[in-house]
Design a protein around this nucleic acid. Structure first.
Lengths: 218, 218
DNA sequence: TGTACATCAGTGAACGCGCGTTCACTGATGTAC
DNA sequence: TGTACATCAGTGAACGCGCGTTCACTGATGTAC
């Protein structure tokens, strides 16, 4: 005899929403999904395990999401909002453009390393096809655009005569910070230098900050 | 009635090895496993699908591997050997240390981007715990050591007065090339600059190559 | 003020699937005597 | 030269599992009359 009832697992049976407030479940599901992925990794996420966690029948999820893919896309979306906000908040603390850029990159990497399972969810699966119509609005695009702007501000504030392409330079920095975070996540035993230090060194070298002719240490 | 026979799927039933040559199957399994992952992604790999592909009973795999984890570890090992060799071969073509370093990094990224599913297998799962006893000999460590040497040669050949730590600089370059490859793999729609160009620009900037005071383009 | 009824917010049983792993087995083949 | 036998290289049925998804359903509650 198979048991598919809703009180399995750790969860308690959840109280049903009042009439008209059915959509609250949607938010609870996303919340719980983020928590599950964060705690147990993206692979541990299934509709059934999620339902168990929330204390509902698995089928109830279909009231708010057409399938698992759509639910995962909603989680990704949500995580990118958090990342974008964290990076923006960190950057807003500095007046100096270079410091702001460093802070932004530090925050990005700290988010990734601090929430490795979320970060893998965000980048570890092919993006669900964009909602057809706004091709450039993938989640994470906002975050990247902010980085381009931050780089551009630095370039304009720097010594004249530089004409680096801010978009290109930003994509290089993005790749590098992604790499710094990912290698650390997947090779935790490697003798890494402290995260903040490494990120700042990366930014300084890629941007050409620091002592003009030669660079020794910072 | 369930069907678990060996002629299922595309495969033909395989001829059994001659006496004393049973270990040939091990090699065939690894070969087929690499091919499967490369073609269909790391998630498509299962003992049953592998057995189908090779044309044997699923249980025969246990003659050579204690479980799926050990098999996967063998695949990872094998892939790292290929990567290390590709990077080394590319670097051996140049006398100039900087060119050799650029070529090494280009080859690394080309391998990753050219075999995205293999590369994800190599870095996408936590490394199976090292075989207890040689802690520093994880697969990929060889490859990294070669990179440290290449960086060191460049530093020694460069202008005196530089005292960057080659290990630290190499770990930064490794992270960056990993990031360049991974972002490209997972965001294929992003308007990336050509791979080789971006890799070289990354190396030049991180190493401090190029026009001493200012850098415009290359 | 009372009541029929539509709607809302879910439930629960069942389906078929592929998976890792176990267990007892089989049949060819080389070797010892 | 013949034959018993150990070994080798596998086989095939079965187990229990969790999964995504379907389908018909249920019971509370707000609203129209």
């Amino acid at each position: 005899v198979r048991y598919t009832g809703s009180t399995a697992g750790t969860g308690v049976r959840r109280e049903r929403n009042r009439r008209g407030e059915g959509s609250r479940l949607r938010g609870e599901l996303i919340e719980a999904g983020v928590a599950m992925v964060e705690a147990q990794g993206a692979e541990a996420l299934s509709l059934r395990s999620l339902a168990r966690e929330v204390g509902i029948a698995a089928t109830s999820i279909y009231l708010h999401f057409t399938d698992l893919g759509e639910f995962r896309a909603a989680l990704v979306q949500r995580c990118f909002e958090q990342l974008t906000e964290a990076a923006g908040a960190a950057a807003s603390g500095s007046d100096d453009p270079a410091d702001a850029l460093r802070a932004r990159c530090r925050a990005y990497c700290r988010f990734a390393v601090g929430h490795p399972n979320l970060y893998q969810l965000m980048f570890g699966a092919p993006l669900p096809p964009a909602p057809l119509g706004d091709p450039a609005s993938t989640p994470g695009r906002r975050s990247f655009e902010n980085l381009v702007i931050a780089v551009d501000v630095c370039l304009r504030a720097g010594p004249a005569g530089r004409h680096d392409d801010p978009f290109r330079l930003a994509s290089l920095i993005w790749s590098a910070e992604h790499g710094i975070a990912m290698t650390r996540i997947f090779r935790p035993m490697f003798p890494w230098a402290p995260l903040d230090e490494l990120v700042e060194e990366m930014v300084d070298r890629l941007m050409g900050f620091g002592p003009a002719g030669q660079r020794t240490e910072r």
